[in-house]
Write a protein that binds this DNA or RNA. Structure first.
Length: 456
DNA sequence: GGAACTCGCCAC
DNA sequence: AAACGTGGCGAGTTCC
C-alpha cells in the first residue's frame, strides 16, 4: 500500500493537522490520580474474590485435575485446550487460525455457568489495565497521548500511549469506571463535538446516491428506523418500544452492509447474538422483549417462524437495499473498483490517493473513512487556530475520528459552540465544494468540575 | 531473553 | 465465489 497526499491542499491538511494535534497532545487530558489509585485497589479486591469463587467450582477442579502443568485461568490458549481437546466440547465458533474460540460469544454458547465469574473477572481486569495505563502515562496528572496521521492505511488517525480512541462507552459499568478518571481543569467542563454520520456523509459525496442524500438532508428521515421497520416487519415505529430494534438494524445490518458484509452474517447477528433467538425453529416466548412482546412471538405472527425463514427474509432485504434503496451507491462501488483495476490507484476528492494491492472492499471503504476523518481534521485545525487567535482559556485536548474533545471554560461555551458550528456546517462545505449534503455537528457537555462520565 | 505471533476486546 | 472496513493494547505463547 503506497499512499501520499498528491496535491498541495492535501499536504497542507496533514501539516496543519499534525501541528494542531501536537498542540492538543501538549494540552492533554487531566486525570484524577487519587481516584485511579483507589479504584485500582478496589478492582483488585473484587478480582481476587471472583477468582476464589471460580476456583471453588467443580469445573475448575476438573480442569486442574486433567492438566499436567499449572493451570493459568487467564490463558485463552489453556482454556481452549481444556474445553475443546480434553472435554471434547464442540466450539460454537473458530478463530482466524481455525482453533476453538474462547471469546464471550463462544463461551456463552457452551452454557457453563461456572465461567461467569471468570468472565466478570476479565471485564474488571480490562478496566483495571486501562486505569493502570493512565497512571503509567500521566505526567503531573495529565495524559499526553500521541495522535498519528501516518499509520492508518485508510487515512484515518490512530492514538497511543495511551490510546484515547477506544475508551469504553457502550457498557455503562465500564464507562463509569474508566471515564470517571478523566476530568477537566479546575472550573472547566469537558465537551465533545460530534459529526452526525460523518462517514455516511463522506460516502454520499462519492456515490452521490439520490436516496442516500435525501436521508442525510431531511432531518425527519431516518434510515436506521426505516430498516428496523422493514427487517422486523413493524406496523408502525414507536420510539419508546422499538429503540432497541432500531439499534439492532443499525449495527446488525446497515453498517455491516456498508462495510461489505452479507445477509447470512447479518441474519445470524441480528437474530441470535442481538435478538437472543436460537438457530432452528422458534417457539413462543423466545428472544429479547420489546414492550410486552417477545421477538419470537412477533416474528412468528408475521410469518417468520424459524432462523432459516429469517435468513431468507434478510436476503430479500439485502437485495432491496442495494437494488432499490441505494442503487447508485451500489453502482458507484462497481465503477470505483473498475477504475482501481484499470489504473492501479484511486484519487480521492480532497487531493489524496491510494495505490497498492487492495481488494474491492478495501478500495470502496477507504475513501469514506478518509473523508469522514478529514471533515473532523479540518474542523479540528480551525478550532485550534481560533483558540490561539482569540487567546481562549478553553483548549482542544483530543479527537476520536469524527469528534473533537475540549477542556472548556464555561464562560466560553456559548461562543465556542456557535463558532464551531459555523466552521463545521458553513466554512467546511464552503472549503470543499464537493460536499453535497448538509453537515451536522452535535455538542455534548459534561458537568463543570465533573468527569467524562457525568453528562450535564 | 526478546521478537513475533495469536487471541480477545475496546473504539469509530 | 466469498462473505465486515480501520486501529491499539495486554497477556499468553511460540520461535529463534
Amino acid at each position: 500500500m503506497i499512499y501520499n497526499p498528491h496535491t498541495k491542499d492535501a499536504f497542507d491538511l496533514l501539516m496543519a493537522g499534525s501541528l494542531a494535534l501536537q498542540k492538543a497532545e501538549q494540552n492533554g487530558f487531566r486525570i484524577d490520580t487519587d481516584y485511579c489509585t483507589r479504584k485500582i485497589h478496589q478492582l483488585e479486591r473484587k478480582m481476587v474474590s471472583l477468582e476464589e469463587e471460580f476456583k471453588e467450582t467443580s469445573f475448575f477442579r476438573h480442569w486442574e485435575h486433567s492438566t499436567s502443568g499449572k493451570v493459568n485461568i487467564n490463558s485463552p490458549t489453556q482454556l481452549s485446550n481444556y474445553l475443546y481437546n480434553i472435554k471434547k466440547l464442540k466450539p460454537a465458533k473458530l478463530t482466524e487460525t481455525g482453533k476453538g474460540s474462547t471469546d464471550e460469544e463462544a463461551l456463552d454458547a457452551l452454557n457453563i455457568p461456572e465461567l461467569k465469574a471468570l468472565a466478570q473477572k476479565g471485564k474488571l481486569k480490562k478496566c483495571k489495565d486501562v486505569l493502570q495505563g493512565f497512571m503509567t502515562e500521566q505526567v503531573d496528572g495529565v495524559l499526553h497521548p500521541s495522535y498519528n496521521l501516518h499509520l492508518v492505511v485508510s487515512y484515518r488517525s490512530s492514538s497511543n500511549s495511551p490510546n484515547m480512541q477506544n475508551l469504553s462507552k457502550r457498557d455503562p459499568e465500564a464507562l463509569k469506571i474508566i471515564r470517571t478518571a478523566i476530568i477537566p481543569r479546575e472550573g472547566n467542563q469537558l465537551m465533545e463535538v460530534d459529526f452526525k454520520q460523518a462517514e455516511v456523509c463522506a460516502n454520499a459525496c462519492y456515490n452521490k446516491d439520490e436516496n442516500l442524500i435525501e436521508y442525510l438532508s431531511d432531518p425527519d428521515k431516518d434510515m436506521h428506523r426505516d430498516m428496523a421497520v422493514q427487517i422486523f416487519k413493524l406496523d408502525e415505529y414507536d420510539k419508546s418500544i422499538h429503540k432497541g430494534l432500531r439499534y439492532t438494524a443499525k449495527n446488525g445490518f446497515v453498517f455491516p452492509q456498508f462495510y461489505g458484509d452479507y445477509y447470512k452474517n447479518c441474519a445470524n447477528n441480528m437474530a441470535c447474538t442481538q435478538g437472543q433467538l436460537p438457530q432452528g425453529k422458534w417457539k413462543t416466548g423466545q428472544g429479547v422483549q420489546f414492550g410486552e412482546t417477545f421477538l419470537s412471538d412477533h416474528l412468528i405472527s408475521k410469518g417468520i417462524k424459524s432462523f432459516d425463514n429469517f435468513t431468507d427474509h434478510i436476503k430479500e432485504i439485502e437485495d432491496d437495499f442495494w437494488g432499490n434503496r441505494f442503487p447508485e451507491y451500489a453502482e458507484w462501488k462497481d465503477i470505483w473498483w473498475k477504475t482501481y483495476k484499470k489504473y492501479g490507484y484511486v484519487s480521492f476528492l480532497n487531493g489524496f490517493m491510494c495505490q497498492g494491492v487492495m481488494n474491492k472492499k478495501e478500495v470502496c471503504n477507504y475513501p469514506g473513512q478518509a473523508l469522514g476523518f478529514h471533515f473532523l481534521l479540518w474542523v479540528f485545525i480551525e478550532t485550534s487556530k481560533l483558540a490561539e487567535k482569540e487567546k481562549l482559556q478553553s483548549m482542544l485536548i483530543g479527537q476520536v475520528h469524527d469528534s473533537e474533545i475540549l477542556d472548556l471554560h464555561p464562560d466560553e461555551a456559548e461562543y465556542l459552540q456557535e463558532k464551531i458550528n459555523k466552521i463545521a456546517t458553513e466554512d467546511l462545505p464552503n472549503h470543499w465544494k464537493f460536499i453535497n449534503i448538509p453537515l451536522v455537528v452535535e455538542f455534548e457537555k459534561y458537568k463543570i468540575n465533573g468527569s467524562w462520565a457525568e453528562k450535564e
